[in-house]
Design a protein around this nucleic acid. Sequence first.
DNA 1: ATTTGCGTTAACAATTTGATAATACACGGA
DNA 2: TCCGTGTATTATCAAATTGTTAACGCAAAT
Lengths: 226, 226
Amino acid sequence: MSIVKKILIADDEPDILEIIQFNLQAEGYEVITAKNGDEAIDAAKKNQPDLIILDIMMPGKNGIEVCNILRMQPAFNDTLIVFLSALSDEQTEIRGLETGADDYLTKPIRPKILVSKVSALFRRLNKDKDETEIVQLGDLVIDREKYMVKYKGNDIILARKEFELLALLASKPGKVFLRNEILNQVWGTEVIVGDRTIDVHIRKIRQKLNLDCITTVKGVGYKFEL
Amino acid sequence: MSIVKKILIADDEPDILEIIQFNLQAEGYEVITAKNGDEAIDAAKKNQPDLIILDIMMPGKNGIEVCNILRMQPAFNDTLIVFLSALSDEQTEIRGLETGADDYLTKPIRPKILVSKVSALFRRLNKDKDETEIVQLGDLVIDREKYMVKYKGNDIILARKEFELLALLASKPGKVFLRNEILNQVWGTEVIVGDRTIDVHIRKIRQKLNLDCITTVKGVGYKFEL
DNA sequence: ATTTGCGTTAACAATTTGATAATACACGGA
DNA sequence: TCCGTGTATTATCAAATTGTTAACGCAAAT
């Protein structure tokens, strides 16, 4: 999931669409809109949004149908889906939740509530992702699962040792890692390598990142700082 | 997280407590109750529930305070917290969500809504992949049921292992699958095959798809990316 | 009985990575 | 300033890892 969250809104009322779009964009989200269920499905497949807000009552496919269709595809397993409806009808709400929605909003829209709910949902999603070990530090993203480093949106290819070394240092920004600590964590206790080896890898990281984020502490070790 | 989910309910009104307890137990959840904020904290630490339902208005510590206290502890990072309140006051709701709650329920309690929301929350929390049949990723369609892959509308015939390997990689686009993961998922733990086997299958997939979508991460594994 | 295709492995080529040595540089203290 | 200590840089080579091709055994289909 990128840093800027993508949100798809599907509603047949242009006013509603605009209100929601305005409020979410004001919070820094990227917003895509759709005017009916079929458009929503197309847009979802095309854009892979992080969150989809579906009006239940729409011409053509209604929100619940759209949700069912999307939830059948693994690509949308991790996509948040929220329903939106004028009905405060209990039955509909239940049907929505059982379909696999993550939340439910009733009209009239109260923008602050909407924004709060959206950020609460993302907060939870981010916690799930934390287990998969993603570190984000300013413009730098270190993703252990994807084994990738991004700086200002650009992918940076690091070799294994380089990646592990960077990941270690970045795991506790500011902490000075002694050379011994680094050897144990990255190389293990079995292997024995010379001191210069660390320097060389540090250098390669600095070079590839082209970013002054690893500080040498002479006679002690290295630390990561933005 | 165990299979039977533990839910802690904290409310100072015994009636409410009982209604909720009854309905959740009927759904197969294990329910613990607390009569005030302090009891809730004790019970939470002791039982490590999967979900905590907190009444906001309680004698002693109120629900928001309890939430704050728990959220400060890493042990409760993954615990779902839902607020419960008679207030349909917008401000309170926002405060609750910003505190780190995952949802918000208003009294009067409607048991079916409650149960639905709870299961919706757990559904999201469970990363259990309900492997569905059809995946669409850009121009690539993977149909598990038909054991078929389509690229830009053209059918591509993959052998079983090839298909399963591709399906695995595509199930989490971007994730790097270690060679061991691949062996376990595609070949199982029983069979033992050589290292080159994976390479060869990867190569065949690349060849048949004629699409640069599988990236080698040297010393680590492979990942799928469009 | 023969053909066909799959899964596997062996053998070798190609590539990438990691470690080291040699050398240059920076900095503080005598 | 000159020296000693510790780090940076570069080039080089060995080792690890993967890519590629061909061949073999086997089972299902013909």
